[in-house]
Structures are given as C-alpha cells and as structure tokens.
Design a protein around this nucleic acid. Structure first.
Lengths: 128, 128
DNA sequence: AACTACTTTTACGTAAAAGTCAATTTTGGC
DNA sequence: GCCAAAATTGACTTTTACGTAAAAGTAGTT
C-alpha cells in the first residue's frame, strides 16, 4: 500500500520536532512529497531520517551527512570526483576509528568510576 | 624536574588555540598555576587536556566532561549522591554503546561507498 | 633600553542546529 | 459545510564552543 507518514508520526517515532524535519528538508537531506502544502513522508524518507539521526549522534555536520547521502542518490561519474570522494571516505573512516577508540577508552574509564562508587558505598556501609 | 609547559607548547601539541585552553580554564576543567599572570601548565594539566579533548571528540559537552572530571578530583561522599552518579554513569554507558554501534554501522556503510566508487572507476576504465 | 615573541584580559562576534512564537492555511471528522 | 486539531511558514531567539580584535603585560636577547 506504500503508506504515507505524517510529520508528527515521524517526530514521535524519532523524538525530534517538526521544526527539525522541516529544517532537514530545507537542507536538502529529505524530499517528502506534497499534497497541497502538506508533507507526505514515505519509507524512503523514513530511512533517510534514520540515517541523518545516526550521523548526528556520531557528530557529523549536516553538510557531511548530505555528502554521504548524495553518493547514493547520484554517485559522481567523473574520475577526479570519484577519487576525491574516496579520499574523503578514507579520512572519515580514520576519524571514526579514532572515535571508536575514544569511546572504548571512555567506557573503561566509566567502569572505573562505577567501581570507585561501589567501593565508597561499601565503606559507608551500604549493601548493594 | 617537574617541568612546566607554556600555553603555546600545549596548543601545538594538541592542535588547539590558546583561546580554547583559556576557555577550558574559565570552565573549570583545568587549573594551571600562575607566575605573575602567566599560566604554567604541569603534567596533570596536560593529562586533563587530553581527557577533555577525548570527550570533545566523542561529542560530550563541556558540562558533561566537567562532571566526569569532578569525580576524580572529589568523589561524592554521600549515599544519595553516589547512587545518582552511578545512575548517570550507567546512562552515559548506554549512550556510548549506542554511539559505538552507530560508528560501526557507518563504517560498513563507508565500505560500501568505497566499493561503489571502485566499481564505477573500473567501468570508466581506470585501473586502481 | 629597545626589540621581538609571547601572553593576558576584556569584550564582542559567530556558526551550526535547532527552539520558539505568531500568524496563517489545511485537513479530517461529523 | 463547519470547526477544532494539525500543519505550514517566516522571523526571531537560543545554546555551545570557541574566534577575534584591541590594548597592555612579560621575558629573553641583543
């Protein structure tokens, strides 16, 4: 049936505001259809939004997210462009690997914090 | 000899501006000593800066970074505080695990992008 | 002492990514 | 066909994390 989603359905699903989704449209990240002025979102839009939000959580800027999305829509056809893109992909990857390491380091640091808390609680005489 | 670092030494080492380090001081993340008005940074400050920057790369706000740092300096002594902190630590961890998953998903997506590029290049007749 | 290279403080500026508000439409249900 | 609820638009505001410029202090060198 190729269901349509309303904007508020999606804001509820993803926990973002309508303003945010409209902002993403202004930025060219999604292109919901229109019936009159009302936006109609399809599955494809829904998936794109998921991707945008994932990128956002990781800390990508809108511009970076747009760049990645573009590749799917319209992969560059010229050699120079392709090689440039591959270089950027490579940089991004290095970046993400660093971030993953940062996260792992921080996770084990948080483990330490938790242990310190437990120890302190035991000292005070609280049974956990 | 417990060497001191000047502000510009550290800006060079970490690739940040003097403004950034002074900002971190204003925000209470570091407390370099002073000789007259000039800041003198020690190893401890250096390590703190590393931690701050790691937090920054992950996407923590200054407030969040400060909160984590506080725990080392001055772990809370009261039960309620400790339990609250542990709850926060737990939330942070869930958050980081999500982020790690996001990163892994994005990494494999980037692999796809790269492959698409290679395929396209081969089509054009460029040997890589 | 003058020169050079940093450093400090104060204060205002800025970019990104929305949030907020108010004034219109538009729509779905009866 | 009417009306409350939902959606749209545009303008303005906010927050975070610094940038930037001006004016003056500081330290080592020649």
């Amino acid at each position: 049936m190729n269901k349509y989603y309303t904007i508020t359905e999606l804001t509820r699903e993803f926990g973002v505001s309508t303003r945010t989704l409209r902002f993403y449209e202004d930025e060219g990240l999604i292109q919901p259809e229109r019936r009159g002025r009302t936006r109609l979102f399809r599955q494809a839009d829904r998936r794109l939004i998921q991707e945008v939000l994932r990128g956002r959580r990781i800390g990508f800027t809108i511009a970076e997210i747009r760049e990645i999305i573009q590749v799917y829509k319209d992969p560059p056809g010229e050699e120079g462009q392709l090689k440039l893109l591959m270089k950027r992909v490579d940089e991004k990857r290095a970046d993400l690997r660093q971030k993953r390491k940062d996260i792992e380091d921080t996770l084990s640091e948080l483990d330490n914090v938790e242990e310190a808390c437990l120890t302190r609680l035991a000292e005070i005489g609280v049974s956990t």
